[in-house]
Amino acid sequence: MLAYAQGDVRAFEALYARSRGMLYRFILRSVGDRASADELFQETWSRLVAARERYRVEAKFTTWLLQIAHNLIVDTFRRTRPQADPDETEAVFRTLDAPESERPEQYLSEFEQRRRLQLVLDELPPAQREAFLLRVEGGLGLEAIARLTGAGQETVKSRLRYALAKIREKFAE
């Protein structure tokens, strides 16, 4: 990022290639629809580029990127909190579903697990879902999640605990 701040476009391209999928999935699974995800994804990079002079080495790039995305998502939720009914959830699931060519019949049971996981993620309250995504998608630890979301570590831990409990409950059905 420091190299890009000095005008090295190739450095940015490398960063982008490494982080694009993680960021996109974090945003998409947070907001639930591709149109909003595309918009927020582009806005996140735009904010990052505009703020490149303020980047400091001590901040992990992934954390910084996710922080920007988190702020944009929170703003989006404040403007229009998504109210996903089961039909919308199913539509998202279909959107996120892997191509048919990647779904051999022998993996149907696993597919059912993934489907249930996808459904429960959509049903989670935003704060719990975000904490879960930051952990599994962003690879952040408890402390980093707490700092990024502005919540206490115990609060984050509690959110994750509730999220896991709901996932287990969904899988037990």
């Binding site: 694009r20 996120l96 993934r114 952990r135 599994v136 896991l164």
Partner: peptide, 14 residues
């Protein structure tokens, strides 16, 4: 185990 299951979810990209 949960993270492994998550990684088996579809991995959409821009």
């Amino acid at each position: 185990r949960l993270a492994a299951l998550y990684r088996k979810l579809p991995r959409p990209e821009p």
